[in-house]
Nucleic acid binder design. Structure first.
Length: 263
DNA sequence: ATGCCCGTCTAAGACGGA
């Protein structure tokens, strides 16, 4: 079973690329971020025509996440608990039936957090604390759980072409990296790092300053696996070639193969 | 040192992104 995460940076601008990628890569579940669309205007019809069920959690103009699945949704939950005043659409959870029981998959879009001297940085760190609290409860279920998305965290210097350039940035601040490591301490496995320890694996290249041409990238899109999901870990692939397409997203898909089957 | 580029909303430029 293939589970993919991709920050598409606007579903309206990216619909042709998205449809082409769905046909080419054919994930069973796709976790999308930055759909930048309200639910009513999400282009669900051409995606459904490819055999996907579509669940969105959008808002006007920016943010927004979605789950596309070839399997029927048993349950959908929108929004990260822990702050009733949080209006930003950054979290959606789907529950599916597999041959090994329930599978939970989250599409998350963690706040950027810049500039760090603004309210945006404490919002990011607070969001990560809420994610931890939510995860502690979910881990008690002892089910396969995949937290997939744009974490806006560079975990280690090896995850950036020029780590020195990111010192002080919210994506690389010690507090952000520590919060990411705490997910590991809770028992989550960074799927990509479990199968590949190479330097130079990136998932984002800025549109500016020829970052793509210079391979000046960072790895910030991650699939975090509960122990019960990690038990079924197969391959993990970064679909870098999509960054070279016409009208690309600045992020590329990361695809996980889990050795599970739909029920 | 700063901005570079891009998408959205909405009608020329602000805002958000990383």
């Amino acid at each position: 079973m293939k589970i993919a995460t991709w920050n598409i940076n606007g579903v309206k601008a990216r619909i042709d690329n998205l449809l082409h990628w769905l046909e080419e890569s054919s994930p069973d579940i796709a976790c999308l971020q930055e759909i930048k669309s309200v639910d009513e205007l999400f282009p669900r019809e051409p995606i459904e025509a490819l055999g996907y069920h579509v669940e969105t959690h959008g808002q006007k103009g920016f943010n927004g996440v979605a789950l596309l699945s070839k399997m029927r949704f048993d349950e959908v939950n929108r929004g990260l608990p822990g702050d009733d005043g949080d209006e930003q659409a950054r979290f959606i959870e789907g529950v599916f039936s597999t041959d090994r029981g329930a599978l939970r998959v989250v599409s998350l879009y963690l706040p950027n957090g810049n500039p760090v001297d603004s309210e945006k940085f404490p919002y990011k760190l607070g969001w990560m604390e809420r994610l931890e609290k939510w995860s502690v409860e979910r881990l008690k279920l002892e089910e396969p759980l995949v937290l997939a998305g744009d974490y806006n965290v560079i975990p280690e210097p090896e995850d950036a072409k020029n780590p020195d350039a990111w010192v002080g940035d919210a994506l690389f601040r010690p507090e952000s990296r520590q919060a990411f490591r705490r997910l590991g301490a809770l028992g989550f496995t960074d799927a990509l790092r479990a199968v590949n320890q190479d330097d130079g694996i990136y998932t984002f290249w800025d549109y500016q300053a020829g970052a793509w041409q210079k391979n000046n990238g960072i790895r910030i899109d991650h699939l975090m696996l509960s122990p019960e999901a990690a038990d079924h870990l197969g391959s993990v692939t970064v679909e870098k070639h999509t960054r070279g397409w016409e009208k690309p997203s600045d992020h590329v898909p990361v695809v996980l193969d889990l050795k599970l089957r739909s029920a």
